[in-house]
Design a protein around this nucleic acid. Structure first.
Lengths: 195, 195
DNA sequence: GAGCGCTCTTGACACCGTCAAGTCCGGGGA
DNA sequence: TCCCCGGACTTGACGGTGTCAAGAGCGCTC
């Protein structure tokens, strides 16, 4: 599925580069030249450098939300682990997007309504699951704390995995999914209905 | 305690800048000019741009380790929460260091022995506490998973707090320490000896 | 007092993001 | 049919940045 428009071409090339080398060394000109157009052509599709990162973040959040919903749907008996697993899998399989999405210096959601919307939706999915897990009698404070805890655990694990020192410190990871399951178990947040 | 040497001056200016604006926009020349020296003077103290970030990371890891040890010492009854609290407090109070330490694209520990040493030491402190928490009969796999879980939770919470969308999504945070305690509670990792 | 190494300066280079203007071209109204 | 008009892209320029190379000032030592 080769990208057709220049916009898609640039976006894909940028995501691929970021997945390999991180977002900071990304040269806008290089991407344009590699696509066979002049160094200024992409600026007709994105207002500025930030514009590209915001477009990547929006695309990323859409895939991200879909990934989480799919995983929860596939494992309704343990939504917390499903969420953690989806978070990590997304980060690993879409590093290019992930590395941009949570970097407000690259793409600030505050002044981009579309990005604000999709990132809010991602968070909604999480909170809905926490509601589901804690039940209807849970206090607002508990829901808030549990959502923060689950988000932190997932985000930290994902970050430490894709470009953090985790593998370097704890040794090679044979099965990522097994690690995710063990982490969910060791934190108290896996489904309580243990077999 | 004003920095004396040019090396210290540059380091402090860089850390302050990063704490405010993030590491990416940091201009080496600007820092030098602001310090009243030529644009090339700092390069005599650091091999290149990466060299500054590595120096910041080393300094950061030393403060970081000391912060964790101090917190554990002050709250021996609940080392997990103490660790989480120290992690977050360090990230908030030393953003400039924190934002650099866990960004391998800025400072790769693999080719800097000193950085390798201090970052390894940070991780040791964590693993020692996990040993303490799980007791001597814990399996290696459990220790590994618990350490990963605690690190992920702490790292994720810290990242989401200092420049992530956490406060934007869950609303204003009145007491950071209360949030940290609630998160430790909601994850199953606080000390089991509940009051 | 001559040599030397450390600290810093000066100048140049390629590259980057961005502003401004010009070129090409297809499509719709006269 | 002609015109013109607006979007897609090119070309050129500017200031800023990291880095390489060479040189200047200066305290220390032999």
């Amino acid at each position: 599925m080769a990208p057709k428009t220049l916009r898609e071409t640039v976006l894909k090339a940028a995501v691929d580069y970021i997945a390999e080398n991180g977002p900071d060394g990304l040269s806008f000109r290089q991407v344009a030249l590699a696509a066979g157009v002049s160094h200024q052509a992409p600026y007709h599709h994105f207002s500025d450098r930030k514009g590209i990162f915001e477009a990547i973040a929006i695309e990323g959040h859409e895939i991200f939300t879909a990934t989480m919903l799919g995983s929860i749907d596939a494992h309704p008996e343990d939504p917390a682990t499903a969420l953690l697993d989806a978070y990590v899998e997304f980060a690993v399989n879409h590093r290019g997007h992930f590395r941009v999405m949570f970097r407000p210096d690259l793409c600030s959601a505050t002044d981009n309504p579309e990005l604000l919307r999709v990132s809010g939706r991602s968070f909604e999915v999480l909170v809905e699951q926490v509601h589901e897990i804690l039940g209807p009698k849970a206090s607002v404070a508990d829901i808030r704390a549990r959502a923060t805890a689950m988000w932190s655990l997932a985000h930290g694990l994902a970050v430490l995995l894709i470009d953090g020192p985790l593998e370097h410190e704890i040794g090679p990871i044979k099965s990522r999914r097994a690690l995710v399951r063990a982490v969910a178990e060791q934190s108290g947040m896996a489904a309580k209905k243990r077999r």
